[in-house]
Design a protein around this nucleic acid. Structure first.
Ligand SMILES: [Zn+2]
Ligand SMILES: [Zn+2]
Ligand SMILES: [Zn+2]
Ligand SMILES: [Zn+2]
Lengths: 142, 142
DNA sequence: CGCCTCAATGATAATGATTACCACACTTCG
DNA sequence: CGAAGTGTGGTAATCATTATCATTGAGGCG
């Protein structure tokens, strides 16, 4: 009843909205609201913390950004390539570089597990966290 | 350097430790620290919030309990059957009932993705969240 | 059993991310 | 220009978790 069927959600496009989106786009990895905020401020931009949170959530709601949570419970956001294309992430725990990955095998497995146990309406959270090639190299020498 | 190689970690066994463990064991689903605390208090037990947090983390560290995070960033704990046996969970988002699941296919997929992208030391977070048979039935009638 | 030592406890304060508020600025349109 | 309404952003409020630290109780020993 609440849902606006059409896609549009953010009705006015504002300078701050662009800033947040650009900042996210600039980084190829996941970023926290706090870090997006302080980076923007550090760059001399004038924007409020509340506004950053608002726009990040708007992006997430519109499906333009993916989110995940750190082990410490901090929410991270990332602009993702194809909107509405189901995928997962392989994130470098050092530099944050992120690869979008997918696999119908996993999706099938999830569905199968659900069915096998009589569960319905099953969604899943799948994130891979490791160390990317570049960071491995960095750590190797020295 | 800190690690005691052997299994034992909690050196003194206390009443409070038992309480926390029992409370976890009583529920078959994941429980938050706050809820374990308030349930114990509601039962008339005398225990501090700090202590509940401490014991939950100790259990998690010892591998006796698994943890996961809600979308809101709250940490949940659950005593799991076989210690040191790698598995994942299929959790009912209504009643919290939890099934332990596994699948070497998924593990292989994760490993393969990691290798394919040159990532090393890759771990994964995989949780399935749905509605169990009982809860589906409940929702159907009415 | 009584004593001693130190880990464990728990009330409380501190932290840190996120949200709620709300007065104010900027758009838009008549 | 002026009214109406959205978006902003500083600040206060939330809420889970952690840090402090004085007090308690477990266990070992004589
Ligand atoms: Zn993505
Ligand atoms: Zn998937
Ligand atoms: Zn259920
Ligand atoms: Zn696994």
């Amino acid at each position: 009843m609440t849902a606006a069927i059409g896609g549009r959600r953010r009705q006015r496009s504002t300078r701050q909205g662009g800033l947040v989106r650009d900042q996210l786009a600039a980084a190829d990895g996941f970023r926290s609201a706090q870090s997006v905020f302080s980076d923007l401020r550090a760059r001399g931009e004038v924007i409020g913390l509340s506004t950053v949170y608002r726009h990040l959530q708007a992006l997430a709601d519109d499906g333009e950004a993916d989110t995940l949570q750190t082990a410490e419970g901090e929410a991270l956001y990332r602009l993702c390539g194809q909107t509405s294309h189901h995928h997962h992430h392989l994130v470098c725990r050092i530099c944050g570089r992120t690869e979008e990955i997918e696999g119908r095998g996993v999706e099938q497995w999830a569905a199968q597990m659900a069915e096998q146990h009589g569960f319905t309406d099953v969604g899943h959270t799948i994130e891979l966290l490791g160390i990317c090639g570049a960071c491995t190299a960095d750590g190797t020498k020295s």
